[in-house]
Design a protein around this nucleic acid. Sequence first.
DNA 1: CATGCATACTCGTATAGACGAGTGGGCAAG
DNA 2: CTTGCCCACTCGTCTATACGAGTATGCATG
Lengths: 261, 261
Amino acid sequence: MASLPSILGGLDPTSDRAVFRQIADQLREAIDRGRFKEGEKLPSEAELVEHYGVSRMTVRNSFSILQGEGLVHAEHGRGVFVRPRPPVRRLASDRFARRHREQGKSAFIVEADAAGSHPTVDSLEVKEEKASQDISTRLGSVRRVLARRRRYLLDGRPVEFATSYLPLDIARGTQIAEPNPGPGGIYARLEELGHQLDHFEEEIRARMPSPSEVKTLQLASGVPVIHLIRTAFDTAGRAVEVCDTVMAADAYVLSYQLPAT
Amino acid sequence: MASLPSILGGLDPTSDRAVFRQIADQLREAIDRGRFKEGEKLPSEAELVEHYGVSRMTVRNSFSILQGEGLVHAEHGRGVFVRPRPPVRRLASDRFARRHREQGKSAFIVEADAAGSHPTVDSLEVKEEKASQDISTRLGSVRRVLARRRRYLLDGRPVEFATSYLPLDIARGTQIAEPNPGPGGIYARLEELGHQLDHFEEEIRARMPSPSEVKTLQLASGVPVIHLIRTAFDTAGRAVEVCDTVMAADAYVLSYQLPAT
DNA sequence: CATGCATACTCGTATAGACGAGTGGGCAAG
DNA sequence: CTTGCCCACTCGTCTATACGAGTATGCATG
């Protein structure tokens, strides 16, 4: 690495911009310009204290700004690093098309294999439970539901956490209530049960994760989540499934195709 | 407000959870439970210093966690407040349907009026410029484009910042190159010019905002942005417009309807 | 009554120091 | 050579203090 003074400038004492912001600005610019590359270690707190002639807390304050922006992450005992951008998973709007439901493996597995990454699904839980107010409304005033929870990982990294809710009168006692719903997933089973799927509705929000989501998805600070709620409707117009998904935002791009009507 | 000890507990010295995290946990829980309501002022730093018997920096550290989560925001000289959740704007996937293009006013204005809020559009800029690599690719290798930039506000609050890019051979010299594109917007003009719209593709990402986005959208800390890139295709299969939109994530819910095919 | 200032309270910025804990390299002992 | 310890370096946590600047309130002055 080049010497610090050649990468980072000095402070402007006449500026009314706070010192820790000036330092953050310089580091951010250096990162944007590629002076510090993905995964590379930034100067240590001590080095920056030395370089700028400020106290350590001031430097730490700068780092915390960049962390909040998702640009860097700190590793205890090692240093502060430019956060590498993980490969993103592309979700196309036709991902639930019937033709994708032919094979035995789930869409997640097939797609990950194709992308050369190693997919895993864990913490599978299938149980009956009381529907939340929101789920009940979406499913048309049901009291209890079958909930299917699972977490998806790519190359060991958790990227998505999803729960499907289904009305008991549809799902109870069927293969949908089994941990492994069989080839084509629960949508294939629903159609076999006479609920021909008509369309899906998806609601998308983005927000900062709750502490429990940070834990489950092992999120670095400065990484938002995409919260997607999908409702599946059968040809009778009935909502037959609600799927609540929380995704690590840095791992996903959602893609939709809309008719111009 | 009830007394502090009745809302916030004490610290657990035996816990290995850092003190500032314990304080943040208690404040977060109090907020979640509605002990502190939206817009309400939290105890001041001094009060919490008193209550917990810790130093001020420790309390500030707790607040900075909650700020990063988007739960609270600080106002210089006033206090720290529970961040109110703004009314969200719902974007439905049929928002560009031809039938919505009849009236003179833009979709944004019509919709906001219906919701009872006061919409504004500002910082309108229309100019020809060099296409970025990404835009060029999406539009099919054009070098220069017409760029239409504008910012949308609801009740004075900026919520969205968008830029449309169009190939010069289509847009130059037409009403599309005017600040006001006329009734039905640029999509109506494109169709009049013989580019019957066939479908749109939308790409959605979520991430933390850049400093300039924070400024333009006046974002509180802990608020991510939704980055939406829409490409419009005509019936000849040509990409005739790319619209790059950055939205305050706390102001939007995107909604899509997908066929089950 | 109205104006304006003093003041108390709020958060913002910055310093200096202390100790703890994770990491990794080098050196010494076996 | 291998094992294990020490040490230097890293970030994590916390204290104590100081001054600045924005806000709001009330009181004194005109």
